[in-house]
Write a protein that binds this DNA or RNA. Structure first.
Length: 462
RNA sequence: ACGCCCAUCGUCUAUCGGCUAGGACACAAGGUUUUCAUCCUUGUAAGCGGGGUUCGAUUCCCCGUGGGCGUGCCA
C-alpha cells in the first residue's frame, strides 16, 4: 500500500478529477487522525479524532492513526506512548498499525522530485539559504472545493502563492508529507480542524500534481475557551491528560466532546457509543465555534459516574483515597459501604473524593475557613458545642435516632433553635458545610471521635 | 492590510420558509429534611444591525458589525 503512484506529468491547470479505477464502485471510507506527538493531547485535537472515529464507525469504514513525528525533538517515545494511551483510554484505537510519518520521508521527497520533473514544482533559492522545492499554484482563475460541513469554499488564484514543499535542508514540509501520506493511506475523508481550510487549496494542488483523486474534506469548527478565545494551554485544563487526572470518565468526556459541533437532531444528550455512531453524520456538524463548558462536562460526568456498577465505584473510591494519602482500610467494611452509599450521589468527579471524604479516614482533615467563620465563630458556639459533647457522652446508645432526638431536645431548650447546633456540629466534625445528613455522619464516625472533635473545635469557636 | 470562514437563551444546541422559537447545562423558586448532592415541579432567558426576495423570514441574497482563521523554508 505504500507504493508511489507515479505523479502524472499533467500541467498545473485542469487535470479533471478523472474517475480512477476504484472510484466507480462504492469505496469504503478511510479516515485518519494525524496528530504530532508533543507529550500532551489537546482537547481540540482529540475532538477531531472523535469525529473521525464516529464517522468511520458510522459508515463501517476504517479509522487510522498516523503519527506525524517528523519533529524529532518533541516526538519522544514517551510522547508517542502518551498519545497511544489517550487513544486507548477513550476507546479509539487504530484499525491498522499506526503509520509513522518519519518513516515516509523518502517517499515524500520522491513525490517532490517527480513534481519538479513534471513542472508542477520547481527549485528556488528564496532567502539565500540554498535551494528548496516550491509547489506551483495556478496563476489565474478560481479554485474551489466542497467542504462536507462548510459547503462550497472558493478562492481566487491571485490570493494563493507558490509554497515550499521541501526545505533547503532537504526535509519535507507539512503540506507535502500530509498529502502524500493521506494519498498513500488511501484516505477518503479528511476530517480536521477549521484552521486548515486555507491549507486545503495547497493540498488539493499537490493531489492534482500527483494525478490523484483528492479526498473529501470536512472542516470542524474550533473549540474556544470560556472567554470565547481559542483554547490554549493557558486555559488550565486543555489536555486530555488534565481531565484524566481530575477523574473525569472517558465515556463522559467522549460524549461531551461529541456534542461540541454536532447534535443528533433530536433532543438526546446522554448517548451510548452505539447511539452516537448511528446518529453521527458530517452534514449534521455545525460550522461555528463551540465554547468549552466545564460545568456541563461536570454534570455529564456525574451522570455517567452514577450509572457505574458498584464494584467500579468502590474501586475508584479506594484508588482516589489512597492517592490522597487516606487509607480506605482504616474503617470496617460495614462503615466503608455506608460511606459509599452516602458519598456516591454527592460525587461528580472522582478527583473530589479525597477532599470530600477525608474526615471519615483521618482526624487531620482540613477546615474550610469560611465554614469556620460562619458556623464556629458566632458568639455562644463554644458553649453549645460543649453542651452537645456532654449530651452525646451521656447517651445510652449512639444511634441515628438517639443523636437526632438529643440534638432536637437540646435545640428546643436553647431558644437559638436546632440550627445553631446542627451547623456548628457539622463543621466541627467534618470541617465543611456540606456533606451527608448530619446524623448518618455522626453515627459512622462514632461517638468517641465525634466528641473528641467537638471538644477540639471549641478552641476555634466563639 | 488583504483573503477565507462563522453569527439562535449566559453556555451547548434544535429548526432544512409557517415559530406560541424546542431541549440540555447553568441560574432562580418551590416540593422536601439541618447543609450539600440526588430526585420532582416551575420559572427567567435567544434569532448582531440594516436592506432586499417572498403571502410569510431565525431560515434565502446583499451590505455593515463582531469574532475566528489564514497570508512561514511551523504543524
Amino acid at each position: 500500500m505504500r507504493r508511489p503512484s507515479a505523479p502524472s506529468a499533467t500541467r498545473s491547470p485542469p487535470s479533471p478529477p478523472s474517475a480512477s479505477v476504484w472510484s466507480s464502485r462504492p469505496m469504503s471510507v478511510r479516515v485518519r487522525f494525524a496528530p504530532s506527538p508533543t507529550g500532551q493531547v489537546h482537547i481540540g485535537n482529540i475532538r477531531a479524532a472523535i469525529f473521525n472515529w464516529l464517522y468511520a464507525r458510522h459508515t463501517g469504514g476504517a479509522f487510522l492513526l498516523r503519527i506525524e513525528d517528523t519533529d524529532r525533538e518533541r516526538s519522544t517515545p514517551e510522547a508517542i506512548r502518551t498519545l497511544l494511551d489517550v487513544m486507548e483510554w477513550l476507546g479509539m484505537t487504530s484499525d491498522e498499525p499506526p503509520v509513522y510519518q518519519s518513516a515516509c520521508t523518502e517517499r515524500h521527497l520522491e513525490v517532490a522530485e517527480a513534481m519538479v520533473a513534471a513542472g508542477t514544482a520547481y527549485r528556488e533559492d528564496r532567502d539565500g539559504k540554498g535551494e528548496c522545492i516550491v509547489c506551483r499554484m495556478p496563476e489565474s482563475g478560481r479554485l474551489e472545493f466542497t467542504d462536507a460541513v462548510k459547503g462550497r469554499i472558493r478562492k481566487q488564484a491571485e490570493d494563493l502563492q507558490d509554497f515550499v514543499i521541501v526545505r533547503s535542508d532537504g526535509t519535507p514540509v507539512f503540506h507535502l508529507a500530509n498529502v502524500v501520506d493521506d494519498h498513500d493511506m488511501r484516505i477518503t475523508h479528511v476530517i480536521r480542524g477549521d484552521d486548515h481550510v486555507e491549507n486545503t487549496f495547497k493540498h488539493l494542488q499537490i493531489f492534482r500534481a500527483m494525478g490523484a483523486e483528492p479526498p473529501i474534506y470536512a472542516h470542524l469548527p474550533m473549540i474556544v475557551n470560556h472567554m470565547g478565545k481559542p483554547y490554549s494551554k493557558r486555559d488550565g485544563a486543555a489536555f486530555v491528560g488534565d481531565f484524566q487526572a481530575q477523574g473525569f470518565l472517558p465515556e463522559a468526556l467522549f460524549n461531551f466532546l461529541a456534542l461540541l459541533g454536532w447534535a443528533p437532531g433530536d433532543d438526546r444528550e446522554i448517548m451510548t457509543r452505539g447511539e452516537m455512531v448511528e446518529a453521527f453524520d458530517l452534514d449534521r456538524c455545525k460550522s461555528s465555534a463551540a465554547r468549552f463548558d466545564l460545568k456541563k462536562l461536570t454534570w455529564m460526568n456525574g451522570e455517567y459516574l452514577r450509572r457505574l456498577p458498584r464494584e467500579t465505584l468502590d474501586a475508584a473510591f479506594r484508588e482516589r483515597l489512597a492517592a490522597g494519602g487516606l487509607d480506605p482500610a482504616s474503617v470496617t467494611d460495614e462503615v466503608w459501604n455506608a460511606i459509599l452509599d452516602l458519598m456516591i450521589p454527592r460525587t461528580k468527579i472522582f478527583g473530589e473524593v479525597p477532599g470530600n471524604c477525608a474526615y471519615f479516614f483521618t482526624d487531620d482533615f482540613a477546615f474550610d475557613p469560611r465554614a469556620v467563620e460562619k458556623r464556629l465563630r458566632p458568639e455562644g458556639t463554644r458553649e453549645r458545642l460543649l453542651k452537645v459533647a456532654e449530651t452525646f457522652e451521656s447517651l445510652p446508645a449512639f444511634t441515628l435516632e438517639s443523636t437526632e432526638a438529643a440534638l432536637r431536645a437540646l435545640g428546643e431548650s436553647m431558644a437559638t433553635g436546632i440550627g445553631s447546633l446542627v451547623h456548628p456540629v457539622r463543621v466541627a466534625v467534618s470541617g465543611m458545610t456540606e456533606g451527608p445528613g448530619l446524623f448518618e455522619m455522626l453515627v459512622l464516625l462514632g461517638r468517641e471521635r465525634v466528641c473528641a472533635r467537638l471538644r477540639q473545635a471549641v478552641r476555634m469557636a466563639g
